[in-house]
Design a protein around this nucleic acid. Structure first.
Length: 427
RNA sequence: GGAGAGGUGGCAGAGUGGUUGAAUGCGGCGGUCUCGAAAACCGUUAGGCGGGUUUCCCCCGUCUCGAGGGUUCGAAUCCCUCCCUCUCCGCCA
């Protein structure tokens, strides 16, 4: 959420930023509502001040036994209350409209973000590794998995519905190995591990920005809870409505969770395989940082995600998203894309963002540092996939497949699979 | 699911209609003392919004005692609804 004061004082900056993002924005409407809102607050509070004064006097008059004067004061308060009630009604209405604007507007892009309309304007900033030259025609995972007996798309549909998948045998073990490998690796680099609920309430989802605007992307229970689309929402909201001690920053957290997405707007996209499914596993990283260092923290987090791919020996490239392609809460985002032979291209496997104070304002996450400043300030929050486990499993299978239909297990994963070196197809 | 108790400032814990944004204790911060520290003593210590002043210093007003509504001139205090926590019983991985 944007800061109303900042918007008020920087209408042109905000208008330009929203235009760069391709977001709807009406500076005039905001300005008008904001002005009226402040007028009304003044009107109401003047009356409330007089009312409080008169009420106090009534108490004193009653004690002194001056009943007639007390009655006169009561009558005055009664009249003030009628005015306040009327003004309050308009104030609430205006308040609601201002809030609606602020709550549904995306974050402002950071100055280092390239301006662009869509994914075609994203800028590649580095590559690592070289896509393997296959001496045979590589098989896409949607064929390879079922052939090997480790991915079962049809049974996923039977058990739930389309875009759900079942992993079996060494596929299930490989999935678990990836999760443990990622958690252990991040843990050794200073990330505190958490296990969090897979369901979240609306306050939590508001805090990270999924609500109110993107409810259609979420699975909702009939109790009003939502299946989490990413552990980011839980890790970030761990400190909702808290004031952290400055000397405990930055905090680096990680968690493994299943993630659930309705994929409402993506019918027809990535329909084959398990690239885009309603439920997938992910290890997520979240950071809480002081404002001064949050962009350094973003570089570090991106490096931590890339580290996983390097250890797995999977070629990737890193791109910086342009203004028009960034997510709602992000001020700057790096996407990491892994090489997938089936796509003959790089495919997103991680997204690392600095949200600056956008989520912190929504979720009220602050810090104090008495030696440096008085009171408390909003922290900056960051989040990044480290990594999407399902897509990572796909990348391992496709990139490490052999002529005979087997898959070599990357060395770093072998300790997590009892020393096993190869996944053999099961009849 | 049934019965009961309760939700107050960083924490603990008073407060059952009037100058209480809230006693007291602990913790935190500042100071006195000390070579330094501890102890002791003194002071200080919520947040949101609006305005003033103006630039980070303070001043004024207002709202906030789980959330929302009601009664009243006035509610942390009374009433209603909801949420949450705890205890006992039941059920259960």
């Amino acid at each position: 959420m944007l800061d109303a004061k900042f918007v008020r004082d920087n209408l042109d900056v905000v208008a330009q930023a929203m235009a760069d993002r391709g977001a709807e924005w009406d500076s005039g409407a905001f300005e008008k509502l904001d002005l009226r809102r402040r007028e009304l607050i003044g009107e109401v509070e003047v009356r409330q001040a007089r009312r409080n004064e008169a009420s106090k006097a009534i108490g004193a008059l009653m004690k002194e036994g001056k009943r007639e004067e007390a009655e006169a004061a009561k009558e005055e308060v009664r009249l003030i209350n009628e005015e306040v009630t009327a003004l309050d009604a308009e104030r609430e209405s205006i308040d609601e409209q201002v809030r609606e604007i602020l709550v549904t507007s995306p974050n402002l892009p950071h100055e280092s973000v390239p301006v662009g309309a869509d994914e075609n304007d994203n800028v590649e900033i580095r590559r690592w590794g070289t896509p393997r030259e296959f001496e045979f025609e590589p098989v896409a995972h949607w064929d390879l998995g079922p052939q090997m007996g480790i991915i079962d798309f049809e049974t996923g549909v039977k058990l739930a519905k389309s875009r759900f998948v079942v992993l079996g045998r060494d596929g299930a073990r490989l999935n678990r190995a990836l999760i443990n490998f990622m958690l252990d690796t991040h843990g050794s680099r200073g990330y505190t591990e958490w296990a969090v609920p897979a369901l979240a309430n609306s306050e939590t989802l508001f805090g990270t920005g999924q609500l109110p605007k993107f409810e259609d992307d979420l699975f909702k229970t009939d109790e009003g809870l939502y299946l989490i689309p990413t552990a980011e929402v839980q890790l970030t909201n761990l400190h909702r409505d808290e004031v952290l001690e400055g000397d405990t920053l930055p905090r680096h957290y990680c968690a493994y969770t299943p993630c659930f997405r309705e994929e409402a707007g993506s019918a027809g996209r990535d329909t084959r395989g398990m690239i885009r499914v309603h439920q997938f596993d992910k290890v997520e990283m979240v950071k809480f940082s002081e404002p001064e260092s949050s962009f350094d923290e973003l570089e570090g987090m991106t490096a931590d995600a890339e580290n996983i791919l390097q250890l797995l020996g999977l070629p990737y490239r890193t791109i910086v998203l342009c203004t028009g392609d960034m997510g709602f809460g992000a001020a700057k985002t790096y996407d990491i894309e892994v090489w997938l032979p089936s796509y003959e291209n790089y495919k997103e496997i991680s997204s690392c963002s600095n949200c600056m104070d956008f989520q912190a304002r929504r979720a009220s996450i602050k810090y104090r540092d008495p030696g440096t400043f008085k009171g408390s300030r909003l922290v900056h929050t960051l989040n990044g996939s480290g990594l999407a486990v399902g897509r990572c499993l796909v990348a391992v299978l496709e990139n490490y497949q052999q002529t005979d239909g087997s898959v070599v297990i990357p060395e770093v994963l072998r300790p997590y699979m009892g020393g096993q070196e190869v996944i053999q197809p099961v009849g």
